[in-house]
Amino acid sequence: MKRAIYLVLIVFAFVSCQAQQKEEIQKVSPEQFSQKINAEKGQLVDVRTPKEYKAGHIQNAVNIHLYDQDFEQRINKLDKDKVVYVYCKAGGRSADAVETMKAQGFKNIVELDGGTDAWAEAGKELK
Rank of each mutant, 00 (worst) to 15 (best):
N63T: 01
N38E: 13
N63H: 06
Q35R: 13
G92I: 03
I75T: 00
Y87V: 01
C88M: 02
Q43V: 10
V84L: 09
I37K: 00
I37P: 01
H65Y: 12
A95H: 07
A90Q: 12
I58W: 07
V98R: 05
H65F: 11
V84R: 00
E72N: 15
A90S: 15
A120D: 12
E121V: 07
I109L: 14
A97W: 00
V86M: 09
C88A: 09
Q69C: 03
N63L: 06
E31W: 07
Y67F: 14
L44W: 03
G114K: 01
Q59C: 12
L66P: 02
A103M: 10
K51V: 10
Y53E: 06
D70Q: 13
I64H: 00
D81W: 03
A39L: 14
N108F: 05
K54Q: 14
R74N: 08
N63V: 01
K89R: 11
M101G: 08
E52A: 12
L78T: 03
T116E: 03
I75M: 08
G115L: 04
V47F: 02
N108Q: 14
E40I: 10
V47Y: 02
Q69G: 13
N63Q: 11
W119V: 00
G92S: 13
K102Y: 10
E40L: 12
F71K: 01
V28E: 11
S29K: 05
G42T: 04
N60Y: 11
F33Q: 04
E52T: 01
N38A: 15
S29G: 10
Q59H: 14
F71P: 00
S34R: 07
A55Q: 13
I64D: 06
V62Y: 09
Q104R: 15
P30H: 05
D113H: 07
S94R: 02
E111W: 02
